[in-house]
Design a protein around this nucleic acid. Structure first.
Length: 371
RNA sequence: GCGAUAUUGGUGAAGUGGUUAACACGCUGGUUUGUGGCACCAGUAUGCAAGAGUUCGAUCCUCUUAUAUCGCC
């Protein structure tokens, strides 16, 4: 994987670049919808192409359990299996350790993580080596190191140990990584603590990866301020010539703030999740199509949006689908929401080229109601 | 025409002679940030068919009326 810097912004860390991977080129900043189980929920790949989606995220933990990495390897790899021709990044399963830990007991050791399968309850062990070997077999374009993703409420002591462990796991994962066509990213942790982020970033860069992710962010009601700090403290120690990926973010304003701080790639479940719950992004803030005021609103979500949904359907009809619990509703809203975020990244690239990203941000926030 | 039984919010319905009428669905808002999710949170009947009576007090007891269902001439 190669990263080429096309333009940097004078007053900020923002950068517009080009990622080249397996003959595929994509301009950054970019937004990556989440397709956990080898599908972006409810959407076909044609719909993804139509919204200029060049990269998606799939999940190692879920595909390991079902259908199993060997099935996907036999199918000829994840791309052939799901018929997607863009880039695919696989998350390592590290986040699942965090989300599984919320309710059930987990057992995190230096070796790896023990937990019970959510499908049949059997006890499983996921290790850094195993995660990477599974990802090698899945054949994604980008594999992620297996990390520990602690909650925002974790103490300094806990985070410190967690950072150490994640670094050791990153080394072990890299040692077994043997898929030449697959890039491998390391992950910076450390919560909102400057010294931990610095240490985590420096040590992870020493190991040497094709790109670097900032993890452990936007969890558990972490404040915006802490999140932005975590990004700043991490990015400061990451190399200019490698891609930076902010994991799990998300919200339009967070994406803008992330880009200003030097982030290139984002992923988030928000556009698809809120879509299935009847909500969508607009330039004036998020709207809820459950709201009665849209009952007889025969205009598109946004008249100047170029997505398939806005070109063809009214809010009244979309509200009807949502109120009737029809799956087409969530699907059409997913199309709009993903396109909304991708278009946002396209505009950010343009704003960087024009050296006016701060003005772009201020203008966006002025129009975007968060309440 | 006579008799029996019923009548609780938008819907299906619990319930008791005594402070705020259960629950579910619906509806109205809100939440959601590397998806174990058609999830979670909140609000939603000053009133129990109408009127009168008994009682310190009635949705719950009595009477009348209305409506509905089922029987019988």
């Amino acid at each position: 994987m190669k990263y080429e810097l096309l333009h940097t912004n004078k007053n900020t860390m923002a950068r517009h670049g080009m990622v080249e991977c397996n003959g595929y080129k994509y301009k950054t900043p970019m937004f990556m919808p989440v397709g956990t189980k080898a599908t972006v929920k409810t959407l076909s790949v044609e719909e993804l192409y139509d919204m200029h989606c060049g990269i998606i995220l799939a999940n190692t933990y879920h595909l390991w359990l079902r259908p199993g990495e060997d099935v996907i390897a036999k199918a000829g790899g994840l791309h052939k299996f799901m018929n997607y021709k863009g880039l695919i990044l696989t998350d390592s399963g590290g986040f699942q350790v965090f989300s599984l830990a919320k309710n059930k007991k987990k057992d995190i050791t230096d070796e790896g993580v023990y937990f019970k399968s959510h499908i049949d309850g059997q006890k499983l062990l996921l290790t850094p080596e195993k995660s990477i070997m599974i990802q090698n077999k899945l054949g994604s374009d980008i594999a992620m190191s297996f990390d520990e993703c602690p909650p925002a409420s974790a103490s300094y002591e806990y985070l410190k140990n967690s950072v150490e462990r994640t670094i050791k796991w990153a080394i072990r994962g890299k040692q077994v990584h043997n898929n030449k066509k697959q890039a491998l990213f390391g992950i910076v942790q450390g919560g909102a603590y400057p010294d931990l982020r610095k240490y985590s970033a420096i040590e992870t860069v020493k190991i040497g990866f094709d790109g670097y992710a900032i993890g452990g962010v936007a969890n558990d009601g972490e404040s915006k301020d802490d999140m932005y700090k975590a990004i700043d403290y991490s990015v400061a120690y990451l190399p200019q010539d490698k891609v930076r990926y902010l994991m799990g973010v998300g919200d339009p304003i967070d994406i803008i703030e992330g880009v200003i701080r030097g982030v290139d790639i984002f992923d988030c479940v928000l556009p698809t999740r809120i879509a299935r719950h009847g909500q969508c992004f607009t330039r004036h803030g998020k709207i809820n199509l459950h709201n009665q005021k849209f009952k007889e609103d025969f205009t598109p979500i946004e008249h100047d949006c170029d997505c398939y949904t806005c070109r063809n359907y009214t809010k009244s009809y979309l509200r009807h689908l949502i109120m009737s619990d029809e799956t087409l509703g969530g699907r059409l809203l997913s199309i709009h929401n993903i396109r909304f975020l991708i278009r946002l990244t396209e505009e950010l690239a343009e704003a960087i080229d024009n050296d006016n990203i701060l003005k772009y941000r201020d203008n966006f926030i002025k129009n975007y109601r968060t309440k």
